[in-house]
Design a protein around this nucleic acid. Structure first.
Lengths: 291, 291
DNA sequence: ACCTGTGAAGGATTTCACAGCG
DNA sequence: CGCTGTGAAATCCTTCACAGGT
């Protein structure tokens, strides 16, 4: 979940696919958590199909998709019955059903805005093309980049967004602009008719609620891992603390020290005692870490 | 969320930060969902600090971070009290506390493996450097790329992973290799001492449970948005169906048609009726969409 | 005998709503 | 009076465990 706001966050039901009450015929009510896992199941199923399988058990598919089998069965049960008791799931019709649900039985046209460092790489990312999407247009605000060909697609100016989005019937856009430009570009995209945005810029977009937004922030992912590293260090620190408690006078800690910052609540702030860096680099002062 | 498996998924408590029972002193028990939001709060706080604020209300910070204020207050309450009733939160000490919890008061060294299309862009991504990380080493299996400088950092061969990971005391790695190579590289990284991996390769990694893994699959994000597009189409389709129900004989649908695939359950498979493409592109046959 | 599909239980997360402090 | 901090309620999600097909 990472992750990830989709504009339905404030929705009433948490189920997706409902109209006002009850599901659209043949479009089942799916828990958001299930939707987020379907692509992973699909990838695993394609892989199984390519390696010659035509059925798979819940256990086998769960393993390939990195979930447990009860969760997988529950998820698939929302799609209807594609399994055979005593045997497993038929891969081919299950692939068809998941692709149908995900709206992948058409090749969706996608616009990408911002062909800087990251955007350039995304424009060339083969995974989009191979998994149901067609990059139909590239945009950048920088006139010196306009006209450049990336992967055979010309970069156009952001001023052309309305025209191109309409002519190509684009409903999904990928935003890879600098943070400062993201909101304005998103507004342009939405005005042009885009209704889903994948946002790589580290800002929260403010958009009409019918627009679905998913945010991918690469630094956030590392920061979450950093938390886990810190926690692991705190554990070993505590585990070792009895053994070290007397002998540790000198300055080479075996693991990160766990020195909480001084609490500035109430009575006067105290200079924060920073933990010793484990990898030799100087500890970053707070002000240096710009966002 | 998303996603994201962190190796603790099968954990007992769902709280992170506990040793076996009870929290490490000054290292609070945090719900995983809270941990995933702290980086977003941190980004918003930095932004507020840069724009001259030194306190902020839960409402204001919630707005900047894209959550509601009740959730924000609950999250921050887990960190201890940094707010003043009637006033709001003091930004500076709160930034310090969040950075401490996330383990960002050191600049963590990160290794990046795979300098292809995406990896190259990640190596140059300024957001890593500006938000607490230092790309300390680049690796690739392709000898023709070894020696190349990217952003001033030389690309080394993957065979050097053990040596460099140790000498640079790297505990976090970013995996941007092709899918086929990812598991083997991940095994090498873990053997060398890496304990957290950010995986961009579309495969599920099988690693010891003490290793934290977060997965970012760019195509998955688009597929989730595609689901929402499909759902939105199904809604308008249904909403319009009464109005159109007689007049719609000819072939230009105003929105995507909602034709569910034929169900192959039980009695004999029927050729699936695909939905009409909305943007003129031919509908992708299932087999074409490789993963 | 095996494996799916699913009620029911158990957790985790979000939201409500208000007590209590500044 | 305003705003945080937080029990309690509500909702969502996962896991258990087994009934029921094949």
């Amino acid at each position: 979940m990472s992750q990830q706001r989709t504009g339905h966050e404030a929705g009433i039901t948490g189920r997706v696919g409902a109209v006002t009450s009850g599901a659209v015929p043949d479009f089942p009510d799916l828990p958001e958590a299930t939707v987020a896992r379907l692509p992973e199941y699909l990838r695993a199923l394609h892989h199984l199909a390519e390696t010659g399988h035509d059925t798979v058990s819940s256990e086998g598919l769960a393993l390939a998709a990195g979930v447990n089998s009860a969760k997988l069965r529950k998820d698939l049960s929302h799609l209807g019955s594609y399994g055979t008791r005593g045997v497993g799931y038929d891969i081919e019709p299950l692939v068809g059903q998941i692709e149908y649900i995900l709206g992948l039985n058409m090749r969706r046209a996608v616009a990408l805005v911002g062909v800087g460092n990251l955007g350039h790489a995304l424009a060339g990312y083969a995974g989009f093309a191979s998994r149901g999407f067609r990059i139909a247009a590239l945009f950048d605000a920088d006139l010196t980049r306009v006209g450049e060909l990336i992967n055979g697609i010309p970069v156009r100016h952001t001023a052309d967004i309305p025209e191109v989005v309409k002519s190509e019937a684009i409903s999904i856009a990928v935003l890879a602009t600098p943070a400062g430009a993201a909101q304005a570009v998103a507004d342009q995209l939405v005005a042009a008719g885009v209704t889903s945005i994948l946002n790589f810029a580290p800002v929260v977009l403010n958009l009409p609620e019918q627009v679905d937004v998913r945010k991918v922030d690469l630094a956030v992912e590392l920061q979450i891992l950093s938390f886990h590293e810190h926690r692991k260090s705190a554990r070993t620190e505590q585990a070792n603390s009895a053994a070290r408690s007397r002998a540790a006078a000198a300055g080479h800690a075996a693991a990160e020290q766990v020195n909480p910052p001084a609490r500035a609540a109430g009575q006067g702030r105290v200079a924060r005692v920073l933990g010793e860096a484990v990898n030799g680099a100087p500890v970053a002062a707070l002000g240096e870490v710009a966002v």
